[in-house]
Amino acid sequence: MLSFLGKRAVASGISLVGLILLVFFLSRLTGDPTGLYLPLDASEESRNQFREIHGLNDPLIVQFFHYMGDLIRLDFGESIRRAEPAIDVVLRGFSWTLQLAAITMTLVVAMAIVVGSLAAYYIGGIFDRIATFFSLIGASAPDFWVAIVAIVVFSVTLGWVPTSGTGTVWHWILPISVLFIRPFGLIVQVVRGSMITALGSAYVKTARAKGVKMRPIVFVHALRNALLPVITVIGDQAAALLNGAVVIETIFGFPGVGKLMIDSILQRDFTVVLAAIMVTAMAIFLMNILIDVLYSILDPRIRY
């Protein structure tokens, strides 16, 4: 297990360096930030001074090595826009995103597993039909559209919840609900399919022959076997949320890492873009490890 973790860490480290390389040089292609930060009539002298302060005068390759040198000392650089360490800005945004993702995914997983399992157990019945109908709609609904319609209906027309921002519990309801829909629909479908296979399996027949009750048959015998493919999809969906639900955060003015990334790209705040990418990549790496560990907990045949 430890050597497995070691190998995974090395592999992730290599891809992280590749990612930094790519983003560092690509983001430079968007142009010089100087024009964005100084007034249009700023003198060439002050422009030069700005570039000097932010190290933009050096050749690109020298800038890169400076950046990497700082990075080894865990210095992610300063945000041009906010004049504070980039990592602080990113972690602030990431903590918002993390909360949003954690709450959403907990709700999604708990509800999708119950709904999907019951749909599989009552296959072809009325519950199954309703669940399948709504989960298909959920899985295929475009979230930006749902978000805007939700704002129009629940905030503007009915006035139940605020349109955007943060501050009260009420601010969280719309973003969570909108983010919930697609992963929920998708995971219900996967759980249902996987559970149909598991419930038709030979070991479930054995359990029935033993006189095991319906609930343990579904949620003890079948579910644990059915969860393996489900966990892969859960991990995938959670990763998407951790990356920052860019569209949703922007629509709801939610100060998460997704919105931060978009803003920083537009503002050519390179250090923040890079720090945000490293933080989310790290989070996704940790989550993948968690999923691998979960696999081996759920299935004793899987050993690393």
Binding site: Y203, T206, A207, A209, H221, R224, N225, P300
Partner: peptide
């Protein structure tokens, strides 16, 4: 009670 042909698939692989 009942026992079956293929004990590997009739035992649940993830429980002791």
């Amino acid at each position: 009670a009942m026992i079956f042909q293929d004990p590997l698939s009739h035992l649940n692989p993830v429980y002791s």
